[in-house]
Design a protein around this nucleic acid. Sequence first.
DNA 1: TATTGTTATACTCTATAACTATA
DNA 2: TATAGTTATAGAGTATAACAATA
Lengths: 160, 160
Amino acid sequence: MTPARRPARIGFLLTQLGSLAAESFAARARELGITPPEAGAMRILGRGADMNQRELAEKLGVAQSRVVALVDSLEAAGLITRERSTTDRRNFVLHVTDPGRELLARLRSAAEAQEEELTEGLSADDRDRLYELLLRLGDARGLDRDVHPDYRGGSAHTDR
Amino acid sequence: MTPARRPARIGFLLTQLGSLAAESFAARARELGITPPEAGAMRILGRGADMNQRELAEKLGVAQSRVVALVDSLEAAGLITRERSTTDRRNFVLHVTDPGRELLARLRSAAEAQEEELTEGLSADDRDRLYELLLRLGDARGLDRDVHPDYRGGSAHTDR
DNA sequence: TATTGTTATACTCTATAACTATA
DNA sequence: TATAGTTATAGAGTATAACAATA
């Protein structure tokens, strides 16, 4: 005899809360003048290793052609530089500028503010517990990509 | 003096895991021949209260014009009927058919299979704890919509 | 006039494939 | 020939606004 069961809703809640989290982050990024995909590109470039556009495309998990527009606007905003490699003139070397580093710092602050807002109702212990559980879920999925892909989870679930 | 702090990553993890959950649900729904938005519409209609397209649009949080195509394909698939109201001939009354109910049952099974897969690495107690924490997060956000909206969380975060 | 549903149109995001320039 | 980057094109998904039928 099976015990009374909790409804299968973790997937649903993750989808819903993930949507909210992504939206709220997008709103904060917008205030800083950039889009979420641009923020993702900045963080990868901000790690320090200069890279070309093909490598960036690979890390972001998007098409190379997509990176062109992304890099165009980051360069126009003065957040990165794009210089021809001296050793292989087919490559552009992407490099974060000082204003770019300032933006990255503001993005980190935005993430902290979001975290605070998101977990407002939870105690410090609850937050730690939640963090740990989510981390285990992520690890089990091998979720270690630099930037998660877009998704179109849409009206996947209902009921509540 | 502030204690060593956990990185602000709950928002990031929710975004990433939410994306995975939405994707895996979409894949399962696809096997059943429907899209996530269609599944959302079916669940709302499946609650039993017959409604018209405007009401469905409101519950789904999408434009009325969007519902036209949605309802077109659900009707073509034989999952719902669409009959003119006898009292106000401007309205269509949407109603789930028997095959539609069968599909809903399969969707529920799919959600359970997904839940099992998603929480594979967690003990039953951990799953209950996670469920409870996510529920509190959702309640605090007033997240009680029938179907969550699409989102474009994109490359919002990176680092891990 | 107001409302339900429909169609026409446009916009956003992104990928695929053809193209240019270097190697 | 092969590769980095670019451009042209197309497709998905959705909203806004104009429109038709009914109230």
